[in-house]
Design a protein around this nucleic acid. Structure first.
Length: 87
DNA sequence: CGTATGACGTGCA
DNA sequence: GTGCACGCCATAC
């Protein structure tokens, strides 16, 4: 089965452990397209799934960026998971 | 098939 | 340190 770039992105994002945030560039690299970080954000925006912790994907600047379900929700989730991971 | 868009990143002033 | 512009890739229309 040949998986598309977005499928690869989804897998990479799903592999992100809680408390761990990756920037779009990293996800794109894991998807074999280190230059497609643009498409990564675009794909996540057009294809949100409850099984994909896309909220763990942030910008390289450390900024959250955006979130289909609400930017504030993403910020809250990140803070929550980071707090859990920190113990 | 071609154009436009975008949750980005880096460089330069 | 902040702001503006360019470049890159995939998706949607």
């Amino acid at each position: 089965m040949k998986i598309d770039f977005k499928e690869k992105v989804f897998e990479a994002v799903k592999k992100i452990p809680r408390g761990r945030t990756l920037n779009y560039k990293q996800v794109a690299k894991l998807a074999d397209r280190p230059r497609a970080y643009r498409a990564v954000g675009n794909i996540l925006r057009s294809n949100y799934d409850p099984t994909i912790p896309c909220h763990r994907v942030i910008r390289s600047d450390g900024k959250i960026g955006g979130y289909n379900r609400g930017i504030e929700l993403k910020a809250k989730l990140l803070k929550q998971e980071q707090s859990l991971n920190k113990e």
